[in-house]
Amino acid sequence: MKTFRTLASGLALAAVCIGLSTAASAALITEWRFDATNDWVNTTFNSPGPQAPTNNFLVSDTLPDGSDPNGAGNNFDIIRWGTPASGSPSRSFLALDDVHGSAGLFTNDPNGVAGTTVYHGNYRQLASGQQWLDTTTAATTITLTPVTPEGEPLDPIERQFFINFTETIDTPDVGSCPGAPWPTGTTACPDSFTVDLSEAAFSITIDDYIYTFSLLLLDEAGSQNIARLTFEDGQATVWTEEGVRSTLVTRIVVTAEQVSEPAPLALLGAGLAVAGLARRRKKQTA
């Protein structure tokens, strides 16, 4: 009878271990709120324009060419440059959402939610006018706040992504442009955005899950006038077409996987081992 009680206590211990394992397993965060603030940093201008650039930075509810793709009065953070050539709708420009946010970022949803949108007005500018853009960087600060399940609030997660832009000076021979060869019919050198892919994703452990947040650089459904997307040496490069306004739509996606834990059967085995150890000790002292 003593042996039975010892075995029963070992099974009870295993059951307690399994129960504790189940109780300690925190719920998966299934929904997040996504917010972003965006700024242009490290901006430089150069020739061929001999005039110093003026009025280059502004925040506006419309783009320099008069369009408003966001609608609803949402502001754009804008850099503009050059002096428009005949027939060009405006100075060339880069613009992105000044602030952007939405709920509905669901864990393990491959569609994610729309991130920052970048607009490139790539228009002809006078070589005798104001200087042209050389390089700049879009610095995007994102904040991710758990929404569901409700309970004890968790601190928001904050990270930065950087998208570098290089303005390509047109050459008479498109065959000598960066990124060549270009398809037949390309009449001017495309410009490029580059992203260090090591900055484009990060992971964080919350309770029993590892969450990975990823920036998808090019949402093909929403992007327009993109000449090419390439990957090389840990970087992604998006090439935009000349003479039009290009739209680069990014997306944020979150995935999760459970942190490895001792399996319930292993815990049951541990309980049985305790029971066996207790039996051996009883025999030794008998």
Results as ranks from 00 to 15, higher is better:
T117S: 09
T117N: 05
T117M: 05
T117E: 13
T117R: 02
V118E: 04
V118A: 08
Y119P: 00
Y119K: 09
Y119I: 05
H120D: 15
H120M: 14
H120K: 14
G121C: 05
G121V: 02
G121K: 00
G121M: 03
G121F: 02
N122A: 08
N122E: 09
N122P: 02
N122Y: 10
Y123F: 14
Y123L: 05
Y123W: 07
Y123Q: 01
Y123K: 00
R124S: 15
R124M: 11
Q125T: 11
Q125F: 09
Q125S: 11
Q125K: 07
L126P: 01
A127G: 14
A127D: 12
A127P: 14
S128E: 06
G129F: 03
G129Y: 05
G129P: 04
Q130D: 03
Q131G: 13
Q131I: 10
Q131T: 12
W132H: 11
W132L: 12
W132Y: 08
W132K: 14
W132F: 15
L133T: 03
L133K: 00
L133M: 05
L133V: 15
D134T: 05
D134G: 06
D134F: 04
T135I: 09
T135A: 10
T136W: 00
T136G: 01
T137V: 08
T137N: 02
A138P: 03
A138D: 09
A138K: 00
A138S: 09
A138N: 13
A139Y: 03
A139V: 10
T140V: 10
T140N: 07
T141W: 09
T141M: 13
T141G: 06
I142L: 10
I142W: 00
T143W: 11
T143Y: 12
T143N: 12
L144N: 00
L144G: 00
T145M: 14
T145H: 07
T145G: 11
T145V: 06
T145R: 06
T145K: 13
P146N: 11
P146T: 13
P146K: 01
V147A: 13
V147W: 03
V147D: 10
V147H: 07
V147N: 13
T148M: 05
T148W: 06
T148D: 04
T148G: 07
